[in-house]
Design a protein around this nucleic acid. Structure first.
Lengths: 339, 339
DNA sequence: TTGAAAGCGCTAACAA
DNA sequence: TTGTTAGCGCTTTCAA
């Protein structure tokens, strides 16, 4: 593999001149430039980014640690990070943590060794120690979608509290009073905020939060199914606010199986992450989280930190898009796409 | 940031000894080892992988170039690559090409500069030149899911031809004779192979392939919808074989909208990539492609090449899982998961 | 068992 | 406008 020195020899110049050809071409005489470019071409020279990074202390890499590439919500965030990074000439290491703190810690160590310039992370409730350690090495960090307090890092996330409140208010506006809630364990920000948003909306409407109607569990379709089935077996609510799509998928299955029509027999409002819900076309009330923007703006903030931004850590909240959804019409979509 | 030299000074040894502590600890006396480990701890020393790579000529990185992280089929492949890579201590650069040859070429250049040790790629029909260029630099390459001939690179993919044949045969076994086909443009392997598999099965059954029943287009739900609508407007087939999930989603929408019941009014067989289809619970006949294994075995092959494997390029075909599908029952899934 | 020293390929300060 | 040179932090002989 040809090196700068090979190119220099071939072109009859010094390595410094070869360097200038790639980095300050205006500072090189035209005929010298031509000679060097020819040599580069002939030798198929490809600069060694490693050597460059070692010397310049800039690797042009950032990393995203997130739960899993297998979930559309996370990949949308990831795509936002990627696009922003690529636009700025950064390569992105994508690391699946599976929400496993041990895996996360291992990746953080690898990334430190690889001298990434910054880390975007969807932390778990157990990430504090790992993040502190990374910060000891002055590593710029930004938290996405979930937030751990007091680690001195920026965070960018959807306004889950406001979103859940808006969903609940929509249900209340339809005249429902006994509104139930289905959500993840409130140990970390989005789940906690959803619950708070729901409770707040109920309180503002002077309605009690019946503990029998508040169901919390791991955020999976199976749990959503089980919780909803249990809910239906008891004193049923008139409406249901659901904190995330995985629970919602299970809940809608359970409702369908029990012959409960949506929204005729029970109104359902939910955060809407994944296209899979398109198929459950009942008129859901949904809050769409700005996943792509979480990634994009998170990366933007991270790059700003890398560039030396010294402002105090910020917690940016992005608004959700709350709407009554009609079933998706593919022909309409097609027309819109081609129009 | 502490360096090996800092650690050496602090521990009162040479850098060579520090190196040995991390790489050949058995060749170091116990008390020396303890001193050095203590110094590493105190200084929060993190080895610089860049410098290591520069010297040792090993970066411990591979790359995956694939269409987009926004599609579950590709991310399943990606996860296979990631898991295998991580298990072998490799970090993976994930690059979204959006099936854009220009973007692909740009990424390839970046990856060459970063001295990745190998590249797994889902090529486009226009990737030949870029692949040739990478091979000029002795870069190990393995093609995933799609295949371009004559680039001298391994390929790993599902047996789409066999899969489409099996799907078609299932429909024929149900007694159908006029079986239609919906597929992507046959410019590259999987789409071409699907068409060939369908045609082959029809031929073996001594049935004509009616050109009016063979619909090809870009693989999107919108196109699937439009092609199916057109098909229904003409002399309808009795059954439909569909080459991929995106087309199938659109087709099922069109069928539902036209009041055509599946499978009572029309039997449908399709490749099944994405969970979204779970919702279209009619009794489809499906072929599930081994996406994760494509990624896993592709990475395995790539790592073998990196390790110097000299065998001639191989084209590995993986079998699909063909089955009559019952609608998915979430409670059953839950039971299975907890059992 | 330990140390000294020569690079890996590039960057960047300085000199000419 | 061009060249010389000293590193970046680690790996890897070769000696001691």
């Amino acid at each position: 593999m040809a090196t700068m020195k090979d190119v220099a020899t071939r072109a009859g110049v010094s390595v410094a001149t070869v360097w200038r050809v790639r980095n300050e071409p205006d500072a090189v005489r035209a005929d010298t430039l031509a000679k060097v470019l020819a040599a580069i071409e002939e030798l198929h020279y490809v600069p060694d980014q490693l050597a460059s990074s070692l010397r310049s202390r800039q690797t042009g890499t950032i990393a995203l640690l997130f739960p899993t590439i297998a979930n559309a919500f996370w990949t949308t965030i990831a795509r936002g990070v990627e696009d922003k990074g690529e636009a700025r000439g950064y390569s992105v290491f994508l690391c699946n943590t599976d929400d496993d703190p041990a895996k996360e810690a291992r990746y953080l160590d690898v990334l430190l060794q690889r001298r990434v310039e910054g880390i975007a992370i969807v932390p778990t409730a157990a990430s504090a120690a790992a993040l502190q350690q990374a910060r000891r090495h002055q590593m710029p960090i930004v938290q996405l979608h979930r937030r751990i307090d007091d680690v001195g890092a920026d965070s960018i996330r959807a306004d889950s509290r406001g979103g859940a409140a808006a969903l609940t208010e929509q249900l209340l506006a339809l005249g429902h009073r006994r509104v139930g809630f289905l959500g993840g364990f409130p140990t970390i920000s989005p789940s906690r905020d959803c619950l708070a948003g729901y409770a707040g909306a109920m309180a503002r409407a002077n309605l009690p939060v019946e503990s029998a109607l508040v169901c919390l569990g791991r955020s999976t379709p199976e749990v959503g199914y089980a919780l909803t089935a249990a809910l239906l077996a008891g004193d049923r609510p008139e409406a249901l606010c659901i904190g995330n799509s995985r629970l919602a998928v299970g809940a809608l299955h359970a409702l369908a199986e029990a012959g409960v029509r949506v929204p005729e027999d029970m109104a359902v409002a939910t955060f809407y992450d994944i296209a899979a819900l398109d198929a459950y076309s009942p008129a859901l009330i949904t809050a769409v989280q700005p996943a792509y923007d979480i990634g994009r703006l998170g990366a933007r903030r991270l790059l700003a930190r890398i560039d030396g931004l010294a402002a105090p850590p910020d917690d940016m909240l992005l608004a959700n898009t709350v709407a009554r959804r009609a079933p998706r019409r593919l022909d309409a979509v097609g027309a819109a796409a081609s129009g």
